[in-house]
């Protein structure tokens, strides 16, 4: 599919206006249905160079990115941005992802440019991207190198849920899919608002502890989308203040008495082995662990966060009634 659309687009540029209609038809078959509906007569990919796309978008770094044409060869440097781009219906414009980009299934077939934390600048360059999209500050150095090589980069960041919406809208602007981005962000927002309303009445809220790893015990405190997710799902993050290094000692864990622990399934055995936890922490004593049905959805600032939050809300409050 990637090869096909690449071939299609380069030919289209060459023979533009001569036998466009034939190719348009061919291109249409390759478009995901959501996209073709939005793209008003599937002309957008081709019409873009004709209609002035030129725009300046300020990314999360505060950097003004001038885009002269609609990006057609995108490299995505984080699982979250890859997911968002696919959700915007422009998965076929992605020409490089990281080894950690595991959703949707199509992402697995894209060329790999390295790991999420150790990408290869050369592999990115070899895809001749017209836009490289990164998340947060993880790839600061390679991004500087790409910019030196005159490759356009665009960075989004999201620490809170609201910032996830912003990131989605920014990506919509940068890729010319504002409408899809608006719909996606609004759908997430209305879903989460409804969830929050539904869980509001529950009192007391169960104490929730999120554990990313056990040696040392890594957790997440306030000011993060994970913390918000717990709140929206009708729980109370037992970490109510910023922790130095986000690590928790076994003793502090006992003092926090979490009722539920959010962790990957393989960590459960290790949690039991932490001194004192099996005899003093309600979550460990009662085997109250939650992990989303699809791994990583709760910790990845992408579109599936809403799904994970809903699952968590139903886990914390089995009698939850959603409109």
């Amino acid at each position: 599919m990637a090869a096909l659309s690449l071939k299609g687009s380069s030919r289209l540029l060459a023979v533009l206006g001569v036998c466009a209609a034939v190719f348009f038809g061919a291109g249409c078959d390759n478009q995901p249905p959501t996209n073709s509906a939005q793209n008003s007569a599937n002309t957008q990919p081709v019409a873009a160079p004709l209609i002035d796309f030129t725009r300046t978008v300020t990314d999360s770094r505060g950097k003004e990115i001038v885009l002269k044409a609609q990006p057609k060869r995108i490299v995505s440097l984080s699982p979250a941005t890859t997911e968002i781009l696919f959700a915007l219906g422009i998965g076929d414009r992605i020409f490089g992802v990281t080894e950690a980009c595991d959703y949707p299934a199509e992402a697995l077939k894209k060329p790999k440019i390295g790991g999420a934390y150790d990408m290869s600048v050369e592999k990115v360059q070899s895809q001749t991207p017209d836009l490289v999209i990164a998340f947060g500050t993880i790839n600061e150095k390679p991004i500087a190198a790409l910019e030196q090589a005159k490759i356009q980069t665009f960075v989004v960041d999201a620490k809170t849920v609201a910032e996830i919406y912003v990131a989605i809208r920014l990506l919509g602007k940068a890729t010319g899919t504002e409408e899809q981005a608006e719909n996606l962000a609004n759908a997430m927002e209305s879903k989460l608002t409804a969830l929050q309303k539904a869980t509001e009445g529950y009192d007391p809220k169960p104490g929730v502890l999120i554990v990313h790893d056990t040696n040392p015990i890594y957790t997440t405190g306030p000011g993060s989308y994970i913390d918000e997710a717990i709140k929206i799902a009708g729980g109370k993050n037992v970490i109510d203040a910023e922790l130095a290094g986000s690590t928790l000692s076994p003793e502090k864990g006992v003092e926090l008495v979490p009722d539920v622990i959010l962790c990957a399934p393989e960590l459960r055995v290790k949690l039991r082995a932490i001194p004192g936890w099996a005899d003093a922490i309600p979550a460990v004593m009662n085997n109250k662990y939650f992990s989303p049905s699809e791994a990583g959805t709760l910790t990845r600032p992408g579109p599936r966060l809403t799904q994970a939050i809903e699952e968590l809300a139903r886990y914390l409050h089995p009698d939850l009634k959603l409109p």
Partner: peptide, 28 residues
Amino acid sequence: LSVSIRNGNVNRQSAILSQLLGSIQYLS
């Protein structure tokens, strides 16, 4: 370690760090 970074095993790196720095938090 660099192979591990390539595979994105950031969490495991923290365990490695605590082994290299010397840590006795979890003695049972």
